[in-house]
Design a protein around this nucleic acid. Sequence first.
DNA 1: CTTGAGTGAGACATCAATGTCTCATCTGGG
DNA 2: CCCAGATGAGACATTGATGTCTCACTCAAG
Lengths: 200, 200
Amino acid sequence: MSHLGYCRLMAVDREHVLRSAAALLTRRPTATMDEVAKAAGISRATLHRHFAGRDALVRALEALGIEECEAALDAARLAEGPAREAVGRLVREVEPAAGLLAFLYSENQLFEGDQNEGWTRIDDRVAALFRRGQATGEFRIDLTPAWLTEALYGLLASGAWAVSEGRVAAKDFTFMIVELLLGGALRHPERHSEQPREES
Amino acid sequence: MSHLGYCRLMAVDREHVLRSAAALLTRRPTATMDEVAKAAGISRATLHRHFAGRDALVRALEALGIEECEAALDAARLAEGPAREAVGRLVREVEPAAGLLAFLYSENQLFEGDQNEGWTRIDDRVAALFRRGQATGEFRIDLTPAWLTEALYGLLASGAWAVSEGRVAAKDFTFMIVELLLGGALRHPERHSEQPREES
DNA sequence: CTTGAGTGAGACATCAATGTCTCATCTGGG
DNA sequence: CCCAGATGAGACATTGATGTCTCACTCAAG
């Protein structure tokens, strides 16, 4: 088990480091490599042995986020049943990764240009869900799938931050996001005009 | 006019520097003081004469954002008419500042602890609007005003980013945010149960 | 016991951004 | 013309994070 055991132990270790880094950077996006190492319970030297530098660490976190996102997309079975229920499943599945995704979401605003293709694949799958909902008549057609996708990301990030700052209860996370995204804030089923603007 | 003129000119200049800094940092939150100076068409030395350092610059931008936010809150007359229309007015009034607010929104996630009290005042006013809407029966009561407030911020930031990256048209900004926040993505007025979760 | 891989601690060098300083230049008012 | 204030350009030291290196220690396998 010398060789195999070695690799698997490294993987576990790396996984653990990534998890603590994600947890820390979610709260303090500017945390130092020193702090990341300390949070993982290892020395900076060892951290550097696992990840060549801060870039590599963030890249690895991005890969982890993409991986968990796609796992959530798979688990949510977006193609099955009513689209609205698929949205609910998706948010529920993605909830554990919401903090990490919120970090990566704001981190992506910093990087110009080269954005990982994994995100566009995810974008496509989410947008396809909204498009399906529009095709079946469940969702309104005057809000583009691209915007609904962006809005979902924004609500996930807002929700994660609001929970981490104690402004909303963690147990309401999925409920609030899904209810707002699907149903909106209005109470009565009366739907106002689709052209609400005065001229101007 | 030596003295008065001096002050007013300085104010105009400072205003211009702040505007360009806001425009630049909105696109590239990590821009250097050098780049900020270049973007404003002045030298780094002069930039330092206006703002002691990067901290001071960000603080000034924060103050500007708060100022514009409160101006938008005033202009939207949140206490008048149906709450849903007040939300529409608010988003429309706040739209020109959305980019700056998105920058400050993510910047605030970086700073720990001491957050400017101006934001809590703004939070209170927005939350009061949602609370009023709930009291009049316009808004549902199973989404807390605090969450609706956070969600509005998140949608504003998402919208600003989506527009700046060309994913949604700038002219649809207000429409999409208001429609999603108030009406949600569902097409039909049928409202699903307020306890949509399976047990578990 | 011996060995070797992995680790922690810490000493550097590097690098980018920042803050401070000086000096030459420009400009408008006296 | 002369001058004071503001500016631009650039040199310089500082600071904080980072990347690299060495060395001693631990621990489990042989």
